[in-house]
Simulated scan of single mutants.
Amino acid sequence: MEQSDVVISKKQAQIFARAIYKNVSAYIQTHQEEYEQFLLEQKGNDAHEENQSSY
């Protein structure tokens, strides 16, 4: 199956972005502790990756 390019207008892109933001924002508000834990894990992963990089 061939993948075709999809072209949307700026207004359609904004509507799509707002819908995504609205859902993510609602999830974060509902699962605040889980989100904070995720952020801590990501911060730890970033520090670990910095220590593992080669010079």
Rank of each mutant, 00 (worst) to 15 (best):
A19H: 13
Q3C: 12
Y55A: 12
G44C: 02
R18S: 11
S9L: 10
K10L: 06
A13E: 01
S54Y: 05
Q29D: 08
A19Q: 08
D5C: 09
L39N: 06
L40F: 07
K43F: 08
I8V: 08
Y35C: 00
Y55E: 05
S9I: 14
F38H: 02
A19E: 15
E50P: 00
K22D: 11
Q52M: 11
V6P: 00
A13S: 03
T30K: 06
Y35Q: 01
Q29V: 05
A17G: 08
S54L: 04
E33D: 14
I28W: 00
E50M: 09
E36S: 06
Q42N: 14
D46A: 15
N51M: 10
K10E: 11
N23A: 13
I8H: 06
M1N: 09
A19W: 08
D46E: 07
M1R: 12
I15V: 15
V24G: 02
Q37T: 14
D46M: 10
F38M: 07
E41Y: 06
V7G: 00
Q52H: 12
S53K: 15
S9V: 08
K43H: 10
K11H: 10
A47H: 02
F16S: 04
N45R: 09
L40R: 12
E2Y: 11
V7P: 00
Y35L: 00
E50L: 11
Q37S: 07
S54R: 10
H48D: 07
K11T: 06
A47P: 00
Q29A: 13
S9N: 05
A19N: 10
F38K: 05
H31F: 13
K22R: 15
Y21P: 01
S4D: 12
N51P: 02
V7D: 01
Q14S: 05
Q29W: 12
Q3I: 15
S4T: 12
E33V: 11
E49S: 01
Y27P: 01
Y21Q: 07
Y21M: 06
S53N: 08
L40E: 02
Q32A: 02
V7I: 13
Q42T: 03
A17F: 05
T30V: 03
S4C: 07
A13F: 04
A47V: 14
N23K: 14
H31K: 08
I20A: 04
E41Q: 04
I15D: 12
N23G: 14
I20V: 15
E41D: 03
F16E: 03
A17D: 06
S25M: 11
V24M: 10
Q12W: 04
E49I: 01
S53C: 02
N45I: 04
